[in-house]
Simulated assay, not measured.
Amino acid sequence: MRRGYHFKNSIALVFLVVLFCCILVSIVSMFKVPDIVIGNNMNLLKASGNDNLIGTFGNMMIDMLPEDLAFTVFLPSETAFERDLRLNKSTSLVGGKMSDTYAVISRVLGFSTVPRALDSAMVPAGKEVSYDSLSGLELFVSKDVGGVLVVNGVRLERVDIRRGKLVVHVIDGVIMDAEFKQSVQPDFDEDE
């Protein structure tokens, strides 16, 4: 029998190379752990245990954005939603108030979202950079002396939370323009 007879046939050689590559790709792909998908509306922030970091209103706000586009959201903390916007889980998410709550949250989303991914490492120390939000409000982002990010004078509590291409930074306040701020300020006549 002639040595190397099977490999002289070019079709057999190509077949063996393709077969070897397919087996190699199959083996390598088995080592890649797939992402866990939890339900239709569950997102990675909820699945990763960060639900307490961003809260109910934060999740509502983030769910309004597509996951496959790059955005940066300066998300108010749950405390900031209650303190600055008077949104409370027990009263703002019931009955007719639900549509008002969505309107407020979507308005805040426009003020505090930048149409690009912005990690905390991308902000140079000692310099202020500006970005236009979705609503056109100019956001000024800098790092303070301690290296903490600050946006429009509000310090960030948590940075670089990821969900797909979204970058979420939790802030201790609400970014809004003067007109919207005036509309959500408490009526002082109610207390008297």
Rank of each mutant, 00 (worst) to 15 (best):
E138H: 02
L24H: 11
L87W: 02
V14P: 00
N50W: 06
D172I: 02
L69R: 14
N41I: 03
G153S: 05
D160V: 06
V154M: 10
I62G: 01
V114E: 10
P34F: 03
S106Y: 02
F57M: 06
F31S: 07
G58V: 01
G4F: 14
A121E: 13
L137H: 08
Y131T: 00
A125R: 07
I11V: 08
G146E: 15
H6M: 09
K32I: 15
N40Y: 08
N50R: 10
A80Y: 08
M176P: 00
G49I: 03
F71P: 02
L118C: 08
N41H: 08
S133T: 04
A70N: 10
M176T: 07
D119M: 15
G4A: 07
V123K: 11
S183H: 05
A47W: 01
G58M: 05
R155P: 06
D100W: 04
D84V: 12
P76A: 11
V123P: 06
K89N: 10
Y102Q: 14
P124F: 03
K32H: 12
G173P: 09
V17K: 04
K127L: 13
F57V: 04
V73G: 02
V148H: 07
D84A: 08
S29F: 09
L139D: 08
T91P: 01
T79W: 10
S130C: 09
S26I: 00
D177K: 03
G95I: 06
F140H: 15
D132H: 12
A103V: 00
N52R: 10
S135Q: 12
V114T: 02
N88R: 14
G39Q: 10
G39W: 11
I36N: 11
L137I: 04
V148Y: 09
R83H: 13
T56N: 08
G58C: 01
A47Q: 07
F57D: 03
P186W: 02
H6F: 14
N50Q: 13
I54Q: 04
F81K: 02
N41D: 00
R116I: 03
D132V: 00
S120L: 03
D191Q: 03
F140E: 03
L93M: 13
I27A: 12
K181N: 14
L69W: 00
I161A: 06
V37I: 12
M98N: 05
L139A: 10
S90P: 01
F7A: 01
D160T: 06
I54M: 09
I27K: 11
K165V: 05
Y5D: 09
L53W: 01
I62H: 04
R155C: 03
